[in-house]
Structures are given as C-alpha cells and as structure tokens.
Simulated scan of single mutants.
Amino acid sequence: MREIHVIGIGAGDPDQLTLQAVKALRSTDVFFLLDKGEVKGDLIRLRRDILDAHLPAGSYRVVEARDPERDRKAGGAAYAPAVGDWRGARAGIYERLIAEELDEGGTGAFLVWGDPTLYDSTLAVLEEVRERGAVEFAYDVVPGVSSVSALAARHRTGLNRVARPVQITTGRRLAEGFPEGVDDVVVMLDAHQAFRRFAEDDMDIYWGAYIGTPDEILVSGPIAEAGPRIERLRAQARERKGWIMDTYLLRRRSARDGRAQDRPARPR
C-alpha cells in the first residue's frame, strides 16, 4: 500500500515546523509540489527551503506538476461549481502523480501551507482520488501552524477574549455583513479588502501578509486609520511580487475586556 503524508508546514518560516512534521519529512520518499506558474515561483522556492532546512542535501526527491487554473471570476451561484471543477482537475493530477511517481510500498507527501484542515483543499482532493478507485493509498495528516495562529502571535494578541467566541470566515462572506453574535472575526481569502465597509465602525484590525516569510508585512490599529495604509501596502506588494497571501483579525473595541494584549500594537 502506498502511503501519503499531508504535512502542514506553517506559514512560511522553516522554524514553524513541528517535530511531528519533521519526522514525516524524513520518512518520505517523494515530495509532490504543485507549481502555480512563474509569478508564484516563490511558493515552490519556500517549500524547497523548508526541505533543505530539515533534510540532508540530495537525500530527497521532488516531483513538480502544474496546478490547474481556477475560474476566479466566478461568483454567486457559479462559485461552488467553479471550485468543484478545479478540485476535479487537481484530483486528476494527484492521481497521476501517486500512480506514476510513487512505487507501491513507497511514501509520498504533499506540503500544505499553514494547517491542512483550515481552508485548504488537499484533503478533499485526496478523498476524491480515493473514491475514483484507480490507485490505492492510505494517508495521514500532520497539523501545522496556521496563518491564523501566526498572525495572532506576530501581533501579540489572542484570537478571542474572555468568555467570547471567535469566528473564522472568508472575505466573500464578510462582504455580506459582519457575522452576528461575535466581536472577533478572522478573515481569510479576501481579495477585495472587505474590511473597508467597516471603516466607520468601532473596530480594530490586525493585518498581516506573507506571514512567516522575509517579506512579512504587519499593520494594526483602528480600521479608519490602518485601512488606507493596508490598501496601499497590499497594492504595492502585489505589484512587486505578482501575488499576495494575507489574513486579518477584526475586533470590536466596544467589547473589550480590558486586557493589555487586546490593545492593538503600533502600526508597522
């Protein structure tokens, strides 16, 4: 039986790997890396840097494949089908990689940014491959340091406050309105800076891009003050690198419980 490790590698810093993740790396015969094109070549290089940091040079094998394009313009009722088509195309690539590049009895691995269980498609794609039945394999999941955890740590704050819930959502959902019943909301996958609609509200934002990498950018403060700076820095970074990965925490100031760590750090 072929074995697959799905390894959470943190937000980009090689030091964020857990001991369990390092052990999984060392037991892997083949690493499968999906190339998102020249613009996002940094993502492949960062993965290779992580392997070089934890494995002896020349001791591992890497197989790269081109990641299928997703229709990012699809919205509304077309969004879910577009994601389904993209996952299906990915499943075909995963199936071929496992069948053709991994010997029976061998161990392969997919390196997943952050944590594989949080807004990542790898587990769903592998399940689709298993359901197709063309190639047999078993897999396990190694948790990683998510960008959400790394964001809170870099801003020296907690995700929730005493006796209060925290919600994790997407920019697409936030654009529909601030979630009810919560005062602390983590937002991921926001390509359109949905936080702007709350600039007049009593809220702080803790924002970070390229967290855990040498290009990391952090900004915090009231949305009315920090928002324009975030928009400017985000546009500049995207223009410079051709891509951006960012996330942020929104926090109602009126609901503070008074702890020092709930106060935003000075903008950086």
Score class of each variant (00 low, 15 high):
80 A>G: 13
192 H>W: 14
256 R>M: 04
186 V>Q: 12
153 A>F: 10
102 L>V: 00
138 A>Y: 14
145 V>S: 03
18 T>F: 03
134 A>V: 14
57 A>F: 03
55 L>C: 03
7 I>W: 04
14 P>Y: 02
55 L>M: 07
196 R>T: 15
264 P>D: 01
140 D>L: 04
34 L>W: 06
182 V>N: 06
242 G>H: 06
148 V>E: 11
111 L>W: 00
30 V>G: 02
72 R>Y: 13
253 R>C: 00
94 Y>T: 00
126 L>W: 08
108 G>W: 00
64 E>D: 05
133 G>K: 06
68 P>I: 03
176 E>Y: 07
193 Q>V: 15
126 L>A: 02
44 I>G: 08
19 L>N: 09
168 I>C: 10
113 W>Y: 01
40 K>V: 13
120 D>E: 12
160 N>F: 14
11 A>D: 03
43 L>A: 06
172 R>G: 08
68 P>A: 09
41 G>K: 14
173 R>E: 15
68 P>E: 10
214 P>H: 02
91 A>D: 02
86 W>K: 06
12 G>E: 03
158 G>M: 13
122 T>K: 03
21 A>G: 04
49 D>S: 14
237 A>R: 09
97 L>P: 00
249 L>Q: 05
26 R>S: 05
171 G>F: 05
8 G>W: 04
217 I>H: 08
151 L>Q: 09
153 A>D: 07
124 A>F: 08
188 M>N: 08
226 A>W: 03
177 G>W: 08
146 S>D: 07
102 L>C: 00
115 D>R: 02
89 A>R: 13
87 R>G: 06
150 A>S: 13
35 D>I: 00
21 A>E: 03
76 G>A: 08
99 A>E: 01
264 P>T: 05
30 V>L: 04
41 G>H: 11
167 Q>G: 11
260 A>C: 12
170 T>V: 08
265 A>R: 14
36 K>P: 04
74 A>Y: 08
26 R>T: 02
84 G>A: 15
16 Q>I: 11
199 A>S: 15
59 S>M: 06
108 G>C: 00
15 D>A: 14
228 P>Y: 04
198 F>M: 11
153 A>P: 05
220 S>A: 14
111 L>K: 00
25 L>Y: 07
83 V>Y: 07
46 L>V: 15
109 A>L: 00
28 T>N: 02
155 H>C: 07
